Simulated assay, not measured.
Amino acid sequence: MDINVIFSFWLVSILFVLTPGADWAYTISAGIAGDKIIPAVSGLLLGHLIAALIVVVGLGAILASHVMLMKFLTLFGALYVVWIAVSLYKNPPVPAVYNGAASELGETPLKWMKKGFIISGLNPKVMLLFLALLPQFVFPTFSFSNTEQLLVLSVIHLIGCGFVYWFIGVSARKILSNNPALAIKFGRLSAIILFILGSLMLFDSAQKLLVHLQ
């Protein structure tokens, strides 16, 4: 593959990742919790990976042709994001160093990973990114097959995602770990942002579903 193509894709991809959204809000909450950064980021990356693989194996076109299925999936994803936001607001993450034994009784890493997967995996913007972006950087004239090119580009995107989300989580932990009161306020602010984004997703998904049913 041409290094210029790879760099161009990386630039567009990283700009997408650097745009604050539901992934950011969730990663910040995981950072405040202290030991939940890795499972939360892993869940987010798993969602991106599934979306990428769907496009790579050609299922993206199939899902795009089944409009109702996609609309119900995005509606479910939006509802879940809203539910996560409400849960985070009611029980904002507390820095682990101050949480003591209570942190051991909190949600398990697997739950943080599952929520991260739902947030990114059922986010229509992630799927649209791969559907709209990946094919533009695939060239039949290259020595690599189309599938191999798609896989390489997907890995580049996942590496960028992993680094950015990990950095956000670690930064949140370092800045807020010594100030539990501020951490709680910041956690609730993240929950509010997540709720707003989820509500917008929910409104958009429900509106498109109603239009399609009419």
Rank of each mutant, 00 (worst) to 15 (best):
G169P: 01
S120R: 00
K125G: 10
H212G: 03
A30P: 02
M1A: 14
F203S: 08
I38Y: 12
L213V: 05
K125H: 08
V82K: 12
S29K: 11
K125M: 11
S13Q: 02
L53V: 12
S103I: 10
L133M: 13
T27C: 05
P93I: 15
G106M: 08
I168L: 09
I156W: 11
G31R: 13
Y98E: 06
H212C: 02
L88Q: 14
G34F: 07
P124V: 01
S13H: 08
K125D: 12
D204K: 14
P93G: 07
F76E: 00
L53Y: 09
F142Q: 14
A52T: 01
A51R: 03
L11R: 13
W10C: 06
A52M: 02
L110E: 09
F76H: 02
I54D: 03
V17S: 00
L15G: 06
G162K: 06
L49I: 09
G77V: 04
P20A: 01
L79S: 12
M68S: 01
P124F: 00
A172K: 12
I54E: 11
M201R: 08
C161E: 00
L129N: 01
P93W: 04
I119L: 07
I119F: 09
I193V: 13
L213W: 06
A61W: 14
G43V: 04
I192V: 15
D23H: 07
E148K: 13
F16C: 02
S177F: 03
L129M: 07
L131R: 08
F7P: 05
L182N: 13
L133C: 03
I118F: 12
Q214T: 08
L200S: 02
G100V: 00
L194Q: 07
L105V: 11
F139I: 09
V55H: 00
T141S: 15
A61R: 08
I193F: 08
L73Q: 05
F137A: 05
W83H: 08
K174W: 13
L15I: 06
A78P: 00
G116R: 10
L63M: 02
G160S: 07
H212S: 09
A30V: 09
D204L: 04
I38F: 15
L134A: 00
C161G: 01
P39G: 06
L134D: 01
L69T: 05
I50P: 05
L88P: 12
D23A: 10
P124T: 04
G58M: 02
D2W: 14
F72E: 05
V56Q: 08
L151K: 04
L210Y: 10
S29F: 07
W112Q: 05
T19F: 04
L79A: 12
Q214V: 04
R173T: 08
V138R: 11
